[in-house]
Computed example of a mutant assay.
Amino acid sequence: MKGIVLAGAAVLLTLTAACSGQAASDGGGSWKPRGDVRMIVPFGAGGGSDLAGRAMATALEKSKPGLKVNVENREGGSGAVGYSALLAKKGDGNYLLATENAILSLPLSGQASFTRKDFTPVAKLAEDGAVMVVKKDAPFTTCSDVIDAAKSGRVSVGMSGAFGVDSVIFTMIEQKTGVKFQRVPFESGGELVPAVLGGQIQVALLNPGEVIGQLRSGDLKGLCVTTDKRYTYPEFAALGTAKEQGIDVSYVQFRGFLAPGGLDERERAYWEEAARGIPRTAEFQKWLKDNYLQQAELYGAEFGAYLEQLDTALAPVLKKSS
């Protein structure tokens, strides 16, 4: 009778473990998601963050056969709505978020109660520079021309989020040159191209992948790039850097993903291992090429250290602008 009771208890424990939570583990203590995973994109469809989130979701599925990652756009608050959604999933390894510089700029600007420390850094996979663009008939041929115009008059600039990477770069330019721009915020980079074409704004900073079509067609023209060195991609090689044009500013946007805070080591290990497989997929390499990105990998604690260093560097810039 005693043996029967113990066996029954063992079955009960097994059933309880199998039915609880969002994740499954095998007898060896490994972990894997239970059911579909949700990749939150904290900006609207069509922009660089959306393209990045969808590319990483697809590459994760290829890296981990059987894994299903659904993308959900949770736009609003210059990214704060999406990050807050992940914040509410603390301890749930079935959620991820396509992250970029807003994870740092939002808290530093006082626009969010969370910080980078509330999330689990999984992977930084690429870097994305910015191109300053204007309408084809605009009276500017370089970024220096834009600065000169802003010194003597009004120049309207668009930003994909009031506290996004565009805002940081424009703030850096203002601090270095003494000009002031008229800022017009939008929710995503996908909204900036029609805004420039329609004359709602004069100038925008866009990731190369967001604007290559309009540059090829001639509807928009590029003035400079905000990377430290010129692009090696032929389509952008002729564009000088802001530094070459006398504007001592360089800044790139990183692309990667986070998991919620409060994960255990098995969950952390699963996602880091999955992330390391992403660059080996054809889908990831196609995304890099199609969107003119530079591959730049950091995982786990190294990605966390990178965020800390960038946080320190951004603090004086964003505190002056807030």
Rank of each mutant, 00 (worst) to 15 (best):
M56S: 01
S49E: 08
P65T: 07
S84V: 02
G218Y: 04
I201M: 11
N94P: 07
A9L: 15
G46R: 09
T16A: 15
R216Q: 14
F236A: 01
A149I: 05
V69R: 00
L223D: 06
K124Q: 15
A7L: 15
V11W: 06
D36F: 00
V317A: 03
T16Y: 11
R216G: 04
N101F: 08
E210L: 02
A85R: 12
Q202H: 04
C19A: 13
V317S: 03
D145T: 10
A259I: 05
K320G: 13
L307I: 09
R154F: 09
L239F: 13
A123S: 15
A17G: 11
N291F: 13
G153I: 08
I40R: 01
K117L: 12
R74H: 07
G28R: 10
S322R: 14
N70I: 11
S30N: 14
R255I: 14
E75R: 09
A274C: 08
Y299L: 10
A24P: 00
A204W: 10
L13K: 02
V157S: 06
K2E: 14
L108G: 06
G262C: 05
S160E: 05
Q245L: 07
I212W: 01
P139M: 02
A305W: 00
A138G: 11
D264N: 15
V155N: 06
Y83G: 08
D26N: 15
A242D: 07
A57W: 08
P185R: 05
L106Y: 09
G261S: 08
K176E: 14
A112L: 08
V131M: 13
L263P: 10
I173T: 08
K319Y: 00
D137G: 07
L310Y: 08
G240N: 13
A85T: 12
G209N: 07
V225Q: 00
R34D: 11
Y231R: 00
V211L: 02
S217R: 08
G46I: 10
A112N: 07
D148I: 05
F303T: 04
D219N: 13
A80H: 04
I201L: 10
D118M: 07
L258C: 02
S156W: 01
E267G: 03
T115F: 08
L239R: 08
A59P: 06
E302T: 09
F119I: 11
T281F: 06
K151M: 09
S160W: 03
M56I: 15
E235Q: 15
R154L: 11
V5T: 13
I173Q: 09
V165T: 14
G158N: 07
T232M: 04
G66D: 09
E265G: 06
S144W: 03
F119M: 12
D118K: 02
R38G: 00
G213R: 12
S25C: 05
F163G: 00
D148H: 10
E100V: 01
A7G: 15
V5A: 14
G213E: 12
L15F: 10
G300D: 12
V179W: 06
L192H: 09
D128A: 12
F119L: 11
A195Y: 11
R154K: 14
D118R: 04
V179E: 09
G161L: 07
K2H: 13
Y292A: 01
V122P: 05
